[in-house]
Design a protein around this nucleic acid. Sequence first.
DNA 1: TTGTAAGCGTTATCAG
DNA 2: CTGATAACGCTTACAA
Lengths: 325, 325
Amino acid sequence: MANIKDIAKLAGVSISTVSYALNGSSKVTAVTAARIKAIAKELHYVPNAAARNLKRQETKIIGVFLTNFSGSFYGDLLQGIKEGLNQSGYDLIVCSSKQSHRLLPQRMIDGAIILDETFSSEELLEYANQGHKVVVMDRDLDHKNINQVHLDNKAGATLAMEHLIELGHRKLYVVTGTIGSFDSRQRIQAVKQTVGRNPDMQYIEIAGDFTKSAGVLAGKQITQEYSGPAAVFCLNDEMAIGIYEYLLTTNIRIGVDIHLIGFDNIEVAQYTQPRLATIDYSKRKWGVLASEQLLKLIAGIEVEPEHIYVTLIKGKSMGAVPIIN
Amino acid sequence: MANIKDIAKLAGVSISTVSYALNGSSKVTAVTAARIKAIAKELHYVPNAAARNLKRQETKIIGVFLTNFSGSFYGDLLQGIKEGLNQSGYDLIVCSSKQSHRLLPQRMIDGAIILDETFSSEELLEYANQGHKVVVMDRDLDHKNINQVHLDNKAGATLAMEHLIELGHRKLYVVTGTIGSFDSRQRIQAVKQTVGRNPDMQYIEIAGDFTKSAGVLAGKQITQEYSGPAAVFCLNDEMAIGIYEYLLTTNIRIGVDIHLIGFDNIEVAQYTQPRLATIDYSKRKWGVLASEQLLKLIAGIEVEPEHIYVTLIKGKSMGAVPIIN
DNA sequence: TTGTAAGCGTTATCAG
DNA sequence: CTGATAACGCTTACAA
């Protein structure tokens, strides 16, 4: 592990000259700079990040925090974030687990992008109070060191609701997300608004938690109570897949007896048969926007909270109710 | 951003006393320690990682490097790695991109787990030569600072081959992975061995790259050449899904006309209809093992390279060839 | 153009 | 039990 001292000794110059040479300062002759660089290369010199970070008071690393690594959900999102950051010379690291929260307050990263329920909002506000920069994608937080980029949940849920109402559905199950989840709450709120405008609708809420197994459970419950066509709005695709999978084991037909619509348009959604109706949005763009917001926050540029637009994807999993005369 | 100096000033003690107190040394009275801790908490003191890393010459962070973030492939694997590491007080960060390679030589991480084709083996060997600790999961590298944990590719490919031969198949397509991929090469080798033992087999290789779109292309080619039942062994599930998806748009029936088997048992494999036959293994265990190997490497404990065992998962995508008399 | 030296925030050795 | 002080490796005024 060579350091600038070693190089200085070998080159017969002082460490500051080495530092200047390696950082391309014009304060040093082209010849000595070349000589120093040659020696550095030969010694396989790599600057020590800890020392440099300590001096510069920044790491040029941004952390993205996820509740977990599973689910095909995050691929494009992370890709988007990475693109945004790399362009500006920042590196991206992805973290998941309570103990890695420390990376932010300990200043191992210059900022954080949060999509992680294991952070409490109090915790985030405290970090923000200490001057740490944060972008949240999964909650609503007002602080000068926090920016937010949200999905347009209200629009998405409303699109889904209007679609199924248009298809004639009047009996509706809604499988909710984790209690306390921002996205879940916003979606439920929009659902209730739409239901409120359609007084002839029967509305049944099933508590879920965004996981596939919650979907399976919901599927069981719905099957047991089955008494004619019903629409099921799962607040994410993962749970819709759970229901789908469960219904395959019964003789209830999806898109005929039970009608399904999800949210997120995850990859598997297109492989189900019939195709899962769902709400789509650009996960990549969501990520790009989040990274941009964080970089602006770090640079001290003020920004407005932003929204990601959503669209309806129709699928045979959500069919029309036959009109009964 | 309070530091120990601030605390020392407020507590009326020296910085070394503060350091001892905060690190729970017995060299300091319980009362002063308590007083110092109280002040630290009040100031929201958090030790600066850069300074600590610089002094300690370690970061207690391990980096996992992936070629990309997409694909539902990595969830369980990362979960396994994380569990292994967290137990030993290490944090996990996940990286992807050429520029983040720097984290290893710059000593921002104490070691790396590689599942990333963007690292050349030469690059890894150079890091190893500099004393950096690495575990590789995607290649074969012999160095005292590198450990390896591989899938039993040979066994997996052989299982797949024996299965399809047993079902009567004599015409075989193999869709390969990325050229130069260790897993792909090992699997092809096993395939060729089995083919060699069955001289009546017709063997056609289609170059792929482990992506779904490569599968779609392969599907097209196979369809064009179609002249009776054939088995297709895709060297990963992702490509098998590509073929599956393409065949759905044709009137060729999977498991009847074209018989498919993949490798990995990714999540979507169970949603295809008919179910995709594939080779399964515990991705979580693979991760746990990799983290254990890395920690041992760091601790200076010698270990043997390890293998992950694989099993065959049958599926209706791979049916029997009707016996023609 | 190059060298000296201070400082980033910790930890740890050595005196007191 | 507590306090100076050096050291970790680097950057950067300031001096020569």
